[in-house]
Design a protein around this nucleic acid. Structure first.
Lengths: 201, 201
DNA sequence: CCCATCAGTGCAGCATACTGCACTGATCGT
DNA sequence: ACGATCAGTGCAGTATGCTGCACTGATGGG
């Protein structure tokens, strides 16, 4: 199923080490507080042993971190590569424009990176999101006209815009050459359950 | 800190055993699937050993349950005793009646047990709750008149009533002796966040 | 009854978690 | 240079996790 004991030992080790360093503790200090030999602390941190739960419990107590957090499997896909063309095309214009989601995090806190292309004359309308939604965009090619809250902003290559996504807005290409821009969207708290992680990085 | 290794071993053991029994597995079967000796399975289930994470990992894999779930500390306050007089008096009548919350669970699924006393002639009105709310009551002393949805039910000692709490209702004591009854209220899904952890602090 | 299956115990032996100590080496501040 | 403090290694001894086996006892079916 998950991972083998050897890999798990490594993960646990890095977490113990991380927590210890965070507190500015020496090996001796952690060993003393936890009531484990210093030699054992080193071995655990290096993942070269298969510690008993008793030992891990003492270490997790000393570090003030829950034992489950120590033994939790590493989060899947902390880094994920989307190759060119591998993004999800979630919008298509009539004349060739596309909105491609090239990268995104999992709920509940969703951060998305889009790659947008608008053919001349194309327009894409977006409805309002939550009031905490933030959107950042950066124009790479062409000209982009953004209608937002009764105003229209016209951006050229290199221009960027930051706005709150809680109002309906639209992107348009008013020129006669294709427009391309990157769009980053941050929408916190979507999804049902919040996974209380707290695992290393 | 949470609990000592000995107690934890016991908790882990009962969980392993529970999962195994749930699946209708014999000791031999779990031992075989997990790749640990049958002797070890018995020892772990009895909490008489301090298993290594390697062993626990194999068991949790075989059972299809996450290792963190196995080592998670028991949820706090699964049972809570409210001594006599220790309940919260959340309603007081003008002539001595009282509504006392003697026990209740935490959100989101709230189950409450009330101890109500109504002096002669007293009335308590309750507004409507959610449509999924259920109320059960049991009369211990006196007479209770419940007005609900246009009807009035009169209950005597020993009588009980079950109803849905999504309409305004009122309790009254129509007699000249005190009335006492127990009231159980179940209201699912109140409260904002569901605390998934039960880590003690 | 006999036989099979299961949970559970006791024990001997092996593998290894864990300890304690001595040691190396790097990095400080004086 | 010097001592102090730190991380990390190697090793021998001890404690114990873990295995395998033999055994008891309970249950259920033919």
């Amino acid at each position: 199923m998950g991972l083998d004991a050897e890999a798990l030992a490594g993960v646990i080790g890095s977490r113990v080490r991380h927590e210890r360093i965070d507190r500015g503790w020496t090996l001796d200090r952690l060993a003393e507080v936890a009531g484990v030999s210093r030699r054992m602390v080193v071995s655990v941190e290096q993942g070269t042993v298969n510690p008993s739960i008793g030992t891990l419990l003492r270490l997790s107590d000393a570090l003030g971190v829950g034992l489950p957090a120590l033994v939790e499997p590493p989060h899947r896909a902390r880094t994920k590569v989307t190759r060119a063309g591998g993004g999800a095309v979630l919008w298509r214009g009539d004349t060739g424009g596309r909105g491609v989601l090239v990268a995104g995090t999992e709920p509940p806190d969703v951060l998305e990176l889009w790659d947008w292309t608008l053919a001349p004359g194309e327009t894409h309308a977006s409805e309002a999101h939550s009031e905490r939604t933030r959107e950042l965009l950066h124009v790479h090619e062409g000209t982009l006209a953004i209608a937002l809250a009764g105003e229209t902003f016209t951006l050229s290559v290199g221009d960027a815009l930051s706005f709150v996504g809680d109002e309906a807005h639209s992107y348009a290409n008013p020129a006669d050459v294709p427009t391309r821009f990157s769009l980053a969207v941050y929408e916190p708290g979507v999804g049902s359950a919040h996974r209380k992680d707290g695992i290393d990085g």
